[in-house]
Design a protein around this nucleic acid. Sequence first.
DNA 1: GACAAAAAATGAATGACCTCTAAATTTCGG
DNA 2: CCGAAATTTAGAGGTCATTCATTTTTTGTC
Lengths: 208, 208
Amino acid sequence: MSGLRERQKAGRRKDILEAASLLFRRDGFAETQIEKIAARAGLSPATVYNYFASKGDLLLALVALDGEEVRAVGAAIVAAPPPDPVAAVNRLLEGYVDHSLVHLDKRLWRQMMGTALSNAETPIGAGYRALDRKLAQQVTALCRALRSRNDIPASVSCEDAGQVLFYVCNALFAEFVADDAMSLDAMKRRMCREIRLVFNGLRKRTAA
Amino acid sequence: MSGLRERQKAGRRKDILEAASLLFRRDGFAETQIEKIAARAGLSPATVYNYFASKGDLLLALVALDGEEVRAVGAAIVAAPPPDPVAAVNRLLEGYVDHSLVHLDKRLWRQMMGTALSNAETPIGAGYRALDRKLAQQVTALCRALRSRNDIPASVSCEDAGQVLFYVCNALFAEFVADDAMSLDAMKRRMCREIRLVFNGLRKRTAA
DNA sequence: GACAAAAAATGAATGACCTCTAAATTTCGG
DNA sequence: CCGAAATTTAGAGGTCATTCATTTTTTGTC
């Protein structure tokens, strides 16, 4: 039973998200008032708060949708990584940043990352960190796959390696979205160089 | 002439900053209303806005004070780095995170990083990024010093190396401040491991 | 010492998120 | 088809950052 009720509820949720997505992208986050979102979804402002706890929560829901997709793409790479280990990591991390701009733009990412940090102790912050953690774990999983293929020595911790690689990706992405002038390609080039650097290390190669 | 005017102005600015510092730390950022800061500084709320463009700007000013100090400490390390290169980098980055909690607490750092991101296009965001960039450059400078001592091979770019190392530090710090449960020591241990990892690289050592 | 101009301080007003209550509407089980 | 339960809604506030016009204070000049 309870078919109609649930369906309507899911429908309304989707309506709100779609309205928010459109308005946020068109007018920006700060410029989009809850009232406008409600109007476009054909609801009253108060109802929006029945579905989402806050304006930031609404944004997080949009990002979470993205997260699902990007993780699915990543999983395929982890399952069958390219032969060259650097290329494998690069492909995974490039996938993340490539996909990131499909649904959200720079401004919205800034807003999202910012609110997640500012509200770290609320569900928003926790939710965003959870998304991040899942991606970091995927990078770790890739490292494990590479190690099982003997591309990474047994002496290094896959957790640490995955963490570091993801940190590089994440920090670059943060810089990218914070700087309107930086192009996606420029960022990817830097990421590629820095991944290679992490693989090669900073020590002199011991010729012995 | 205009001595009195300037001195008074500087004095008031300092009064406001001190009031803000105390209240932000005691009650938190969101819980501290401009009105309270103004009252403690013996001014009206509107006057605060003659000295700082926004509440976030006030926080940035506090962070900037910190930045001066931490960079001075770092400069000493860059000038005379410890013999072991890993220890040298570790010392510099540990200095950053150690010092970070002297004037601000985790909550305030979250707030700061968050508002800097959310307001990337305003002076707040630009100001915070400028502070960050200066630290990243200091790490790069250390890498250059290490290379001139022949501790880092000529094949690696000091810019990239400094960038990566700073990214690791910064990302760990962000995770640290976002997670109330993480201790400073736990974070420093992870940082140490990850720095070592960056030095050693992810490739098998070519035994030849 | 008085006055005009510049600068700073202030009180009041605005705008937006979010809350809450009470009433209207809709859905569901019997 | 009826009453119970859940959902939606309007509307009235509350809070707080921020802005603006006005007033007050300070400075430089005659």
